[in-house]
Design a protein around this nucleic acid. Structure first.
Length: 763
DNA sequence: TCTATCACCATTTTT
DNA sequence: TGGTGATAGA
C-alpha cells in the first residue's frame, strides 16, 4: 500500500523555497499537510534545514557541518514524511551507526510527534540486519538459534582456528587475521572469492578465513560483519523477499553517511532499489573511520549512483564561536577533494583560541587542571569541560592531575558493561542454558570458576568435537560414555554438564532476572569473582548484581517494533543475549557532574563549552603511523577539525615539549596542525605567569635562536664531559628550554638540555 | 592445574 | 609505563 502511494507521490514536484510560519499550511499544496498544522515541524528551522526537511520525495544528500543541526533535520524530516506527506511509519527506515544515536533519534521523534511511533524502524545497520536474519533465518540458511559473536568471541574463535591449523601465532597474530577477515567481509568478499596467489600472507589468511567461516557455519555463529554481509546476500538470493522490503521501506534515512563502508553502501543500494528514496546525511569533513573500512568516497559516489539527488548544505553552526569556526574552517581547507563547506555563525567571535606550550606532559596536565578549576570556580559545571586526546595512553597523567586537584572526572572508552569478563562469564552460562551447543560460551566457562578441567582435558574434547563435527557439549557427553576421558576429568566434566542442566531445569519457568540471579549464584561466579584481590573483587560482584538489575529492567521491547507479519518467535533470554552482544552498554555509569576525558574519536557528535585539545605534537597527533600516507594525514586533520568543532565557547590547544610515553621520554615538535591555524586567532599562554601573548610572530624557525647566540649550529662538532665528541643534529626551543640533539661517536644520539649540558664547541 | 615471573608490545572503536 | 601472553615451577 505504502509503496504504491509513494510511487505516485514521487512524481509530484513541489517547490518550497520560503516559509512564513503563519502561511505554512497554505503553501503546502495538495499534500495532507494542507489540512494539518505542521508548524511544530517547521518552526525554528533555518532556511536550508527547512529545505532538507521538506525536500520533495526522492533522493537527497544533506551535507551537514559540525553543529549544524543534523539530527534535528533527520528527526524533523521523519516527522514531515509521516505527518505532512502521509507516509506510514512502517515505510520509514532510519539507520545510524551507534545504538546511542538510534535511541536518541527515536526518542526525539516521539517527543516531536507526541505519540509513540509503532512500526517505525530506527536502528543501527547491524541491529536491523540482525533483526532481518532473525526473522528470515531459514532463507538466510542459519539455524534458528544462531548466536551473535562480539569482537572478543570472534578473536577467540580465530585463535582456535589458527591453533587447529597449526599456524604460528607469533608469525601471524590472531588480531591481524581477524582484521583480515573483517576487512574482507566489510568489502563483501567471502573467503572463496579471494584470489589464489603466491603471497604467503594472503594465502595463510585466506586459509584461516575459510576455516573460520566453516566453523561459524557449523556452530551457527554470526560475527558483526557477517550480519551485514549475510543480510545483503539474503536479499540478493531471495528477490521476492527483497521486493517485499523495497515495497515496504520506501523511505530510507542514513545518518553519518561518511562512515558507511562498502558493504553498508551496497546494502543500502540494494534495499533502495530503483524506487526507494534515500536521504543521506553526513559530513565528509568528519570522516574519521577510514582505518576501519569507512569509505569517505561513498558520500561522493552517492550523487552518481542514485538518481536525481538534491544536495543541501547545512553550514550555519549553532555551537561554536566565530573564532573557533574560522580556525576550524581554515584548517580543513587544506584537505583536497572536499565536497566543500564553510561553517558560519550568527553569533560573535568569542574569545581567542588559547595555546599552551607545556614543558612536559605533567605540566600540560597541570595547566589543564588549573584551567578546568577556573571554569568551575567561575560557576561552570565540571560537565562543561572536556579533555580530548589522540590516544588513550595520554589520559593517565591528566587523570592524576585532576584527582590531585579533587576535580571529578569521567573517562569514556575502555571496558563497557557487557564486555567485562564477569558479565561475559555470566552471559555464557545463560547462553548455554539457552543452547547447550554454543561452543564459544562453553569454552569460556567450562573451567570458570576453576573446577579442575584443564587445558589438556579441553583439548581432548575439542579434538573429539572436530573429529565428529559435533558441538563441544555433545563431544563431552560422548567422551564420557566412550570412556575417552580419564576418571578424574570425566568426573569434573560430568559435574559441569550436570551443573548446566540443573541450572536450566531450575530456571525453566522463571523470569529472566530470577534466572540470572540463580545462575550467578549457583555457577559459583559470584563467589569466584568476589574472591579476586582488592577492589576488583568487590567491583566484579557489584557488576554481577548490576546484571541482575539489567535483566529485571529488560522488557524485551524491541529497538524497533515489528509489524504483525514480521513477528518472530524469540525468547526473552535470546533477546537479552542478542542485545548484550549488539549493544555493549555504557562504559561507566554517570554519577554526578564530571570533567569528561575521551579520545578525539569518541568525542564526535558531542559538544562542550570548554574543550582542551591536548597532545598536539608531531608523532602523536598527527600520529606517527598516519604521517606517511597522504590520505591518512588528511584523516588526522579531519580528526583535529572534529576536535576543534566540539568546543562551544573556549578552545584550548596544548602540547608538551617533552612527553613520557611508554616509559621513555620523547621530544616532539609542535603539531603541524597548530601552525595551520591562523595565528591571529590564537593567544599563547605563557608558562608560569599565565600571561597571554599573540601567537606566531616572535617564534623563529627552529635552530635559529641558538645560532644567534653564536653557540651552536646544526652539524657543529661539540664535546660533552661525559659523552665525548659528537655533532649537533637538531636544535629546538629557546631560552631555558632549549634542547639539542647530538650524535655522539661513542653513545649515539642524545637529546640534551642546552642549559645543563655544557657543550663545548670544537671548531 | 594453578600461579608467579618475564619478555614483549604499544593509535583511533563501533557493531 | 603498564597490560598481556607465554612459560616455568609448585
Amino acid at each position: 500500500m505504502v509503496g504504491i502511494e509513494n510511487n505516485e507521490r514521487r512524481g509530484v514536484v513541489r517547490r518550497v523555497t520560503t516559509f512564513f510560519d503563519g502561511a505554512t499550511a497554505e503553501m503546502l499544496g495538495h499534500t495532507k499537510s494542507a489540512i494539518m498544522d505542521v508548524s511544530h515541524i517547521l518552526d525554528h528551522l533555518n532556511e536550508p534545514q527547512r529545505e532538507a526537511v521538506t525536500a520533495p520525495l526522492g533522493n537527497a544528500l544533506v551535507l551537514a557541518g559540525a553543529g549544524s543541526g543534523k539530527t534535528r533535520v533527520l528527526v524533523h524530516r521523519i516527522a514531515w514524511l509521516i505527518e505532512a506527506e502521509g507516509v506510514s511509519p512502517f515505510g520509514v527506515l532510519a539507520v545510524t551507526f551507534t545504538n546511542k544515536a538510534a535511541a536518541e533519534m527515536r526518542q526525539r521523534i516521539e517527543a516531536l510527534l507526541d505519540i509513540p511511533i509503532r512500526g517505525l524502524w530506527v536502528g543501527t545497520f547491524h541491529g536491523i540486519s540482525h533483526r532481518l536474519l532473525r526473522m528470515h533465518w531459514q532463507e538466510a540458511k542459519l539455524p534458528q538459534n544462531f548466536q551473535v559473536l562480539d569482537a572478543d568471541d570472534q578473536l577467540r574463535l580465530v585463535k582456535r582456528v589458527m591453533r587447529s591449523l597449526d599456524i604460528d601465532e607469533h608469525r601471524w597474530p590472531a588480531r591481524q587475521a581477524t582484521w583480515f577477515i573483517n576487512g574482507h567481509k566489510d568489502e563483501g568478499r567471502r573467503a572463496n572469492s579471494l584470489p589464489d596467489d603466491n603471497d604467503l600472507f594472503q594465502m595463510t589468511h585466506k586459509r584461516i578465513y575459510e576455516n573460520y567461516e566453516e566453523l561459524c557455519n557449523q556452530g551457527g555463529l554470526v560475527d558483526f560483519a557477517e550480519l551485514l554481509l549475510r543480510s545483503h546476500e539474503l536479499w540478493l538470493d531471495k528477490p521476492e523477499l527483497l521486493a517485499h522490503y523495497q515495497h515496504r521501506l520506501g523511505h530510507l534515512l542514513v545518518d553519518e553517511f561518511q562512515d558507511t563502508n562498502t558493504i553498508q553502501y551496497a546494502w543500502l543500494r540494494v534495499l533502495a532499489g530503483s524506487n526507494g528514496c534515500v536521504m543521506a546525511v553526513g559530513d565528509d569533513d568528519q570522516s574519521i573511520y577510514g582505518w576501519r573500512g569507512a569509505r569517505i568516497e561513498n558520500i561522493q559516489r552517492y550523487s552518481d549512483d542514485f538518481k536525481d539527488v538534491a544536495t543541501i548544505r547545512l553550514e550555519q553552526n549553532y555551537r561554536s564561536t566565530g573564532n573557533i569556526l574560522r580556525a576550524a574552517n581554515s584548517l580543513i581547507r587544506r584537505n583536497a577533494g572536499r565536497l566543500g563547506k564553510e561553517l558560519w555563525t550568527a553569533g560573535g567571535d568569542g574569545e581567542p583560541i588559547r595555546l599552551y606550550a607545556a614543558y612536559n606532559d605533567l605540566d600540560e596536565a597541570r595547566f589543564i587542571t588549573e584551567r578546568a578549576q577556573g571554569v568551575i570556580d567561575t560557576g561552570g559545571s565540571p560537565d562543561d569541560v572536556a579533555v580530548l586526546y589522540r590516544s588513550n595512553a595520554q589520559s593517565r597523567v591528566i587523570e592524576e592531575a585532576l584527582m590531585l586537584a579533587g576535580i571529578p572526572y569521567r573517562i569514556h572508552g575502555g571496558f563497557r558493561f557487557f564486555e567485562r569478563a564477569e558479565i561475559k562469564n555470566a552471559l555464557s552460562y545463560m547462553r548455554l542454558i539457552h543452547d547447550r551447543h554454543a561452543d564459544p560460551a562453553f569454552e569460556r566457562v567450562v573451567n570458570t570458576p576453576t573446577r579442575g578441567i584443564g587445558e589438556k582435558t579441553v583439548e581432548v574434547i575439542r579434538h573429539e568435537a572436530r573429529e565428529r563435527s559435533v558441538s563441544l557439549w555433545q563431544a563431552c557427553k560422548d567422551a564420557i560414555v566412550d570412556g575417552r576421558l580419564s576418571g578424574r576429568a570425566a568426573g569434573s566434566v560430568g559435574a559441569f554438564l550436570k551443573l548446566v542442566d540443573d541450572l536450566a531445569e531450575a530456571c525453566d519457568e522463571l523470569e529472566l532476572h530470577e534466572l540470572t540471579e540463580i545462575v550467578i549464584r549457583d555457577s559459583g561466579l559470584l563467589e569466584f569473582h568476589g574472591r579476586e584481590p582488592g577492589e576488583r573483587g568487590l567491583a566484579r560482584k557489584e557488576n554481577l548484581q548490576e546484571l541482575v538489575n539489567a535483566t529485571r529492567q529488560f522488557t524485551g521491547e524491541l529497538v524497533f517494533p515489528l509489524q504483525d507479519d514480521d513477528a518472530a518467535e524469540v525468547s526473552m533470554l535470546q533477546e537479552f543475549l542478542d542485545q548484550a552482544a549488539l549493544d555493549a552498554g555504557e562504559a561507566q555509569a554517570g554519577s554526578g557532574p564530571a570533567v569528561q576525558l575521551m579520545t578525539l574519536h569518541s568525542a564526535k557528535g558531542l559538544e562542550f563549552p570548554t574543550v582542551f585539545l591536548s597532545g598536539l605534537e608531531e608523532g602523536l597527533f598527527p600520529h606517527r603511523m598516519s604521517t606517511e600516507e597522504h590520505g591518512r594525514l588528511e584523516e588526522e586533520r579531519r580528526l583535529c577539525y572534529v576536535g576543534m568543532t566540539r568546543a562551544m565557547q573556549q578552545l584550548y590547544l596544548t602540547f608538551a615539549e617533552t612527553r613520557r610515553l611508554h616509559g621513555s621520554d620523547s621530544y616532539n615538535r609542535r603539531s603541524r596542525f597548530v601552525d595551520e591555524l591562523p595565528h591571529e586567532l590564537i593567544h599563547e599562554v605563557r608558562m608560569k605567569t599565565g600571561v597571554e601573548v599573540p601567537f606566531g610572530i616572535p617564534r623563529r624557525p627552529k635552530s635559529e635562536p641558538l645560532q644567534e647566540d653564536g653557540a651552536l649550529r646544526i652539524g657543529q662538532r661539540v664535546h660533552h664531559a661525559k659523552f665525548g665528541e659528537g655533532f649537533v643534529l637538531h636544535c629546538e626551543g629557546a631560552g631555558e628550554r632549549a634542547r639539542v640533539q647530538v650524535n655522539f661517536s661513542g653513545v649515539g644520539e642524545k637529546w640534551l638540555m642546552l642549559g645543563y649540558a655544557n657543550l663545548k664547541p670544537m671548531d
